Amino acid sequence: MRKIFGIILTPIHYIFFGLSLLVFHPLQWMAYNWFGYTAHKRVVDALNWCLTASYYCLGNTVTFINNQNLPLDRSIIFIANHQSTYDIPPMIYFLRKYHAKFVSKIELTKGIPSVSYNLKYGGAANIDRKDQRQSITELMKLGERMKANTWGCVIFPEGTRSKDGQVKTFQSAGVAAIMKRCPDALIVPIAIKNSWKMVQWGAFPLGPFNTMRWEVLDPIDPKSGTVAEVVLKAEEAVKKCLGQ
Protein backbone atom coordinates (compact mmCIF):
# COMPACT_ATOMS: atom_id res chain seq x y z
CA MET A 1 0.00 0.00 0.00
CA ARG A 2 2.82 2.40 0.86
CA LYS A 3 4.41 1.82 -2.54
CA ILE A 4 1.09 2.49 -4.29
CA PHE A 5 0.88 5.85 -2.54
CA GLY A 6 4.45 6.47 -3.67
CA ILE A 7 3.46 5.85 -7.30
CA ILE A 8 0.55 8.30 -6.97
CA LEU A 9 2.42 11.06 -5.11
CA THR A 10 5.86 10.93 -6.73
CA PRO A 11 4.81 12.79 -9.93
CA ILE A 12 3.36 15.61 -7.79
CA HIS A 13 6.65 15.90 -5.92
CA TYR A 14 8.71 15.90 -9.12
CA ILE A 15 6.54 18.61 -10.69
CA PHE A 16 6.97 20.86 -7.64
CA PHE A 17 10.67 20.04 -7.34
CA GLY A 18 11.37 20.48 -11.06
CA LEU A 19 9.44 23.74 -11.36
CA SER A 20 11.39 25.13 -8.41
CA LEU A 21 14.67 24.38 -10.17
CA LEU A 22 13.48 25.95 -13.43
CA VAL A 23 11.99 29.08 -11.87
CA PHE A 24 14.95 29.84 -9.60
CA HIS A 25 17.64 29.34 -12.24
CA PRO A 26 17.12 32.72 -13.98
CA LEU A 27 16.48 34.34 -10.60
CA GLN A 28 19.89 33.16 -9.44
CA TRP A 29 21.52 34.53 -12.58
CA MET A 30 19.90 37.92 -12.13
CA ALA A 31 20.67 38.10 -8.42
CA TYR A 32 24.33 37.10 -8.85
CA ASN A 33 25.08 39.26 -11.89
CA TRP A 34 23.09 42.34 -10.93
CA PHE A 35 23.32 42.45 -7.14
CA GLY A 36 26.13 40.13 -6.02
CA TYR A 37 26.69 37.45 -3.42
CA THR A 38 24.16 38.47 -0.76
CA ALA A 39 21.23 38.65 -3.20
CA HIS A 40 22.27 35.39 -4.82
CA LYS A 41 22.41 33.66 -1.46
CA ARG A 42 18.91 34.85 -0.56
CA VAL A 43 17.59 33.40 -3.80
CA VAL A 44 19.37 30.09 -3.10
CA ASP A 45 17.90 30.02 0.41
CA ALA A 46 14.40 30.55 -1.01
CA LEU A 47 15.01 27.83 -3.61
CA ASN A 48 15.96 25.33 -0.95
CA TRP A 49 12.92 26.22 1.14
CA CYS A 50 10.81 25.29 -1.89
CA LEU A 51 12.77 22.10 -2.54
CA THR A 52 12.35 21.07 1.09
CA ALA A 53 8.63 21.85 0.92
CA SER A 54 8.33 19.47 -2.03
CA TYR A 55 9.02 16.56 0.34
CA TYR A 56 5.62 17.19 1.90
CA CYS A 57 3.97 16.37 -1.42
CA LEU A 58 4.87 12.77 -0.58
CA GLY A 59 3.53 13.00 2.95
CA ASN A 60 7.08 13.12 4.28
CA THR A 61 8.01 15.48 7.08
CA VAL A 62 11.22 17.36 7.82
CA THR A 63 12.40 17.99 11.37
CA PHE A 64 15.59 20.01 11.75
CA ILE A 65 16.86 20.22 15.32
CA ASN A 66 19.56 22.71 16.24
CA ASN A 67 19.77 23.33 19.96
CA GLN A 68 23.43 24.34 19.75
CA ASN A 69 24.52 27.92 20.38
CA LEU A 70 26.94 27.99 17.46
CA PRO A 71 29.05 31.08 16.79
CA LEU A 72 28.33 33.28 13.78
CA ASP A 73 31.79 34.82 13.86
CA ARG A 74 33.70 31.57 13.34
CA SER A 75 33.96 29.18 10.42
CA ILE A 76 32.27 25.82 10.96
CA ILE A 77 32.78 22.45 9.30
CA PHE A 78 29.52 20.51 9.52
CA ILE A 79 30.23 16.77 9.26
CA ALA A 80 27.20 14.64 8.42
CA ASN A 81 26.29 11.13 7.42
CA HIS A 82 24.90 10.89 3.91
CA GLN A 83 21.77 8.97 2.93
CA SER A 84 20.44 10.60 -0.25
CA THR A 85 20.50 13.76 -2.36
CA TYR A 86 17.47 14.79 -0.33
CA ASP A 87 19.82 15.39 2.60
CA ILE A 88 20.97 18.63 1.04
CA PRO A 89 18.12 21.17 0.57
CA PRO A 90 17.08 21.20 4.27
CA MET A 91 20.71 21.68 5.28
CA ILE A 92 21.20 24.62 2.94
CA TYR A 93 18.03 26.25 4.20
CA PHE A 94 18.29 25.58 7.94
CA LEU A 95 22.03 26.31 8.08
CA ARG A 96 21.67 29.45 5.98
CA LYS A 97 22.93 31.84 8.64
CA TYR A 98 26.24 29.93 8.69
CA HIS A 99 26.71 30.33 4.91
CA ALA A 100 27.30 26.57 4.67
CA LYS A 101 28.98 25.60 1.38
CA PHE A 102 28.99 22.05 0.09
CA VAL A 103 31.69 19.70 -1.12
CA SER A 104 30.26 18.28 -4.34
CA LYS A 105 31.16 16.11 -7.32
CA ILE A 106 32.34 18.23 -10.24
CA GLU A 107 29.89 16.38 -12.51
CA LEU A 108 27.02 18.21 -10.79
CA THR A 109 28.25 21.60 -12.04
CA LYS A 110 26.75 20.88 -15.47
CA GLY A 111 23.26 20.25 -16.73
CA ILE A 112 21.10 20.67 -13.62
CA PRO A 113 19.01 23.86 -13.51
CA SER A 114 19.66 25.97 -10.39
CA VAL A 115 21.84 23.31 -8.75
CA SER A 116 24.71 23.54 -11.23
CA TYR A 117 24.63 27.34 -11.21
CA ASN A 118 24.79 27.51 -7.43
CA LEU A 119 27.65 25.02 -7.28
CA LYS A 120 29.63 27.09 -9.80
CA TYR A 121 29.04 30.52 -8.31
CA GLY A 122 27.91 30.02 -4.72
CA GLY A 123 31.29 29.11 -3.22
CA ALA A 124 31.15 25.30 -3.15
CA ALA A 125 34.14 22.99 -3.57
CA ASN A 126 33.58 20.95 -6.74
CA ILE A 127 35.93 18.01 -6.75
CA ASP A 128 36.98 15.50 -9.38
CA ARG A 129 37.11 12.16 -7.61
CA LYS A 130 39.43 10.80 -10.30
CA ASP A 131 41.98 13.57 -9.72
CA GLN A 132 43.29 13.58 -6.17
CA ARG A 133 45.45 16.68 -6.70
CA GLN A 134 42.50 18.68 -8.05
CA SER A 135 40.32 17.51 -5.17
CA ILE A 136 42.80 18.53 -2.48
CA THR A 137 43.46 21.87 -4.17
CA GLU A 138 39.74 22.60 -4.43
CA LEU A 139 39.17 21.72 -0.78
CA MET A 140 42.01 23.97 0.32
CA LYS A 141 40.55 26.81 -1.76
CA LEU A 142 37.27 26.27 0.05
CA GLY A 143 39.16 26.52 3.34
CA GLU A 144 40.62 29.84 2.20
CA ARG A 145 37.16 31.19 1.30
CA MET A 146 35.81 30.02 4.64
CA LYS A 147 38.56 31.77 6.55
CA ALA A 148 38.27 34.99 4.55
CA ASN A 149 34.46 35.21 4.77
CA THR A 150 33.72 33.33 8.03
CA TRP A 151 31.70 30.79 6.07
CA GLY A 152 30.74 27.30 7.06
CA CYS A 153 30.80 24.17 4.95
CA VAL A 154 29.14 20.77 4.87
CA ILE A 155 31.09 17.62 4.11
CA PHE A 156 29.90 14.01 3.88
CA PRO A 157 33.02 12.07 4.89
CA GLU A 158 31.60 8.60 4.20
CA GLY A 159 32.49 9.15 0.55
CA THR A 160 29.23 7.68 -0.73
CA ARG A 161 25.60 7.50 0.27
CA SER A 162 24.29 4.84 2.63
CA LYS A 163 21.44 2.95 0.98
CA ASP A 164 20.10 1.52 4.23
CA GLY A 165 20.84 4.28 6.73
CA GLN A 166 23.80 2.50 8.31
CA VAL A 167 26.66 4.94 8.88
CA LYS A 168 29.83 4.10 6.98
CA THR A 169 33.35 4.90 8.17
CA PHE A 170 34.14 8.63 8.09
CA GLN A 171 37.28 9.52 6.14
CA SER A 172 39.36 12.44 7.38
CA ALA A 173 41.27 13.50 4.24
CA GLY A 174 38.70 16.05 3.07
CA VAL A 175 38.38 17.66 6.47
CA ALA A 176 42.18 17.76 6.79
CA ALA A 177 42.51 19.58 3.46
CA ILE A 178 39.97 22.22 4.48
CA MET A 179 41.60 22.69 7.87
CA LYS A 180 45.01 23.31 6.31
CA ARG A 181 43.65 26.68 5.23
CA CYS A 182 41.05 27.15 7.96
CA PRO A 183 42.60 25.53 11.03
CA ASP A 184 40.34 27.18 13.62
CA ALA A 185 37.08 25.99 12.08
CA LEU A 186 34.73 24.48 14.64
CA ILE A 187 33.73 20.86 13.95
CA VAL A 188 30.00 20.20 14.25
CA PRO A 189 28.46 16.76 13.57
CA ILE A 190 24.98 16.41 12.08
CA ALA A 191 22.99 13.18 12.28
CA ILE A 192 20.58 12.52 9.39
CA LYS A 193 17.84 9.97 9.84
CA ASN A 194 15.44 8.38 7.35
CA SER A 195 16.18 10.43 4.22
CA TRP A 196 17.32 7.16 2.62
CA LYS A 197 13.73 5.94 2.81
CA MET A 198 12.73 8.48 0.18
CA VAL A 199 14.86 6.63 -2.37
CA GLN A 200 14.61 3.09 -1.01
CA TRP A 201 12.93 1.98 -4.29
CA GLY A 202 15.05 4.22 -6.50
CA ALA A 203 13.98 7.36 -8.33
CA PHE A 204 10.46 6.03 -8.89
CA PRO A 205 8.44 5.62 -6.88
CA LEU A 206 9.84 7.70 -4.06
CA GLY A 207 9.04 6.60 -0.53
CA PRO A 208 6.09 8.40 1.12
CA PHE A 209 5.05 9.07 4.73
CA ASN A 210 8.52 9.14 6.29
CA THR A 211 9.56 11.21 9.27
CA MET A 212 12.96 12.59 8.33
CA ARG A 213 15.21 14.24 10.88
CA TRP A 214 18.37 16.32 10.88
CA GLU A 215 19.97 16.94 14.28
CA VAL A 216 22.90 19.24 14.95
CA LEU A 217 25.06 17.67 17.65
CA ASP A 218 27.52 19.06 20.18
CA PRO A 219 30.46 20.90 18.56
CA ILE A 220 33.95 19.43 18.77
CA ASP A 221 37.03 21.55 19.44
CA PRO A 222 39.38 21.07 16.45
CA LYS A 223 42.31 21.19 18.85
CA SER A 224 41.00 18.26 20.92
CA GLY A 225 43.02 15.79 18.84
CA THR A 226 44.43 15.10 15.42
CA VAL A 227 42.14 15.63 12.45
CA ALA A 228 41.58 11.87 12.25
CA GLU A 229 40.69 11.73 15.95
CA VAL A 230 38.31 14.68 15.65
CA VAL A 231 36.55 13.13 12.63
CA LEU A 232 36.27 9.84 14.54
CA LYS A 233 34.60 11.71 17.42
CA ALA A 234 32.12 13.15 14.92
CA GLU A 235 31.42 9.68 13.51
CA GLU A 236 30.86 8.24 16.97
CA ALA A 237 28.52 11.11 17.89
CA VAL A 238 26.44 10.58 14.75
CA LYS A 239 26.23 6.83 15.31
CA LYS A 240 25.23 7.31 18.95
CA CYS A 241 22.48 9.75 17.97
CA LEU A 242 21.14 7.27 15.42
CA GLY A 243 21.40 4.33 17.80
CA GLN A 244 24.06 2.51 15.79
Rank of each mutant, 00 (worst) to 15 (best):
T63A: 11
T63V: 14
N66V: 01
N67K: 14
N67H: 14
N67D: 15
N69I: 08
P71A: 07
L72W: 05
D73T: 11
D73W: 12
I76N: 07
I79H: 02
I79T: 05
A80E: 11
N81V: 05
S84Q: 07
D87L: 04
P90R: 12
P90Q: 13
M91H: 04
M91P: 00
I92R: 01
F94Y: 13
F94E: 03
L95H: 02
R96Y: 04
R96C: 03
R96P: 05
R96H: 07
K97F: 06
H99P: 00
A100N: 06
K101M: 15
V103F: 12
I106F: 02
E107H: 00
L108K: 03
G111A: 04
S116A: 08
L119R: 06
G123A: 09
G123M: 08
A125F: 04
I127C: 03
R129F: 06
R129A: 11
K130L: 04
I136S: 13
T137L: 10
T137D: 13
E138N: 10
E138S: 15
M140C: 08
M140K: 15
M140Y: 06
L142G: 00
G143E: 07
R145P: 06
K147Q: 14
A148F: 10
N149T: 00
T150M: 12
T150R: 08
G152T: 03
I155M: 08
I155S: 08
I155E: 01
P157Y: 14
E158N: 06
G159A: 01
G159P: 08
K163C: 04
K163F: 05
D164P: 02
D164H: 11
D164W: 05
